[in-house]
Amino acid sequence: MSLTDILMQQLVNGLVLGSFYALVALGYTMIFGVIKLLNFAHGDVYMVGGFVGFGVLSAVGGTLGADWGGIAVAMFLSMIAMGCLGVVIERVAYHPMLAAPRLSILITALAVSLVLQNSVLTLTDGQITAFRTDLGFGGLEIGHVFITYNQMVLVGTAALLMIALETFVSRTQYGRAMRAVSIDKDMCRLMGIDVAKVIAITFFIGSALAAAAGTMAGAYYGSIWYFMGFLIGLKAFTAAVIGGIGSIPGAMAGGLILGLLEAFGTQIPGIGSEWKDVFSFSILILVLVFKPTGLFGKSETERM
């Protein structure tokens, strides 16, 4: 394999990884937009989404098959379930804290994260659960680069979800309202916008996207466990910061950039894959130092 082939192969790997990061980063950034909260529980919503997807697939896999058809159903139902969970989390945990000092709600988010993790820890005894599917290993060989059908479906699904989100945000009244709420809540109220409802919709969509990523990641990597949301939560946060927290295109770009950087980073001599996370968080630090507003961020964005 030539260097170009290796780099092309890493490009594919980076896109897959980046798709997961982007889907999770979107929820992070949207929720930050509307209530200025770094929702540390977001990675755990991804994790629970993976478990719900697994549960649904176990139930329907027998009749629908555990290939992409069955996984699509599992993903869809998991998205709905996690969307609702997101709305409940906001109502129960965050809504009462909105007027409190910022630190209180941040701690609340940590508490929600612990509740979700420990619930699943208890249910699974902390064991890794095998996410069994009937996905094959077929694919296309382009030059010397091998792309599996699974990778294509996964990146394609992520792209479709992001296009749908972008359309919602730029074309619909509630999508515009979501942007408006992140700018000026009182003005929104004066225009007749039910701000609480917009916040609920934002949590629904953000959590549903995390659930989609969680289910696909479980199916793709073949295993899920209660702690799997932790690292991706931090990575998604990094991706959101790279793109400029609060910015939806920023989260998409930031996720892809981070995925690609990690994939290519592992090819640099001396940085093996075991250094991947160090590499990512070094990038986070560099962005925070040299361009704290991120690629798409505006300078007036509030900072924690």
């Binding site: 515009r176 942007r179 408006a180 700018i183 000026d184 009182d186 003005m187 929104c188 109220r189 004066l190 225009m191 007749g192 916008i193 039910d194 701000v195 505006k298 007036e300």
Partner: peptide
């Protein structure tokens, strides 16, 4: 506030509050 606005009482606040970026 949003219910009152829907009844046709519309408040243009001090400082105009144009939504930036839109």
């Amino acid at each position: 506030a949003h219910e009152i606005a829907r009844l046709g009482l519309v408040h243009v606040p001090e400082g105009r509050h144009i939504l930036r970026g839109l």
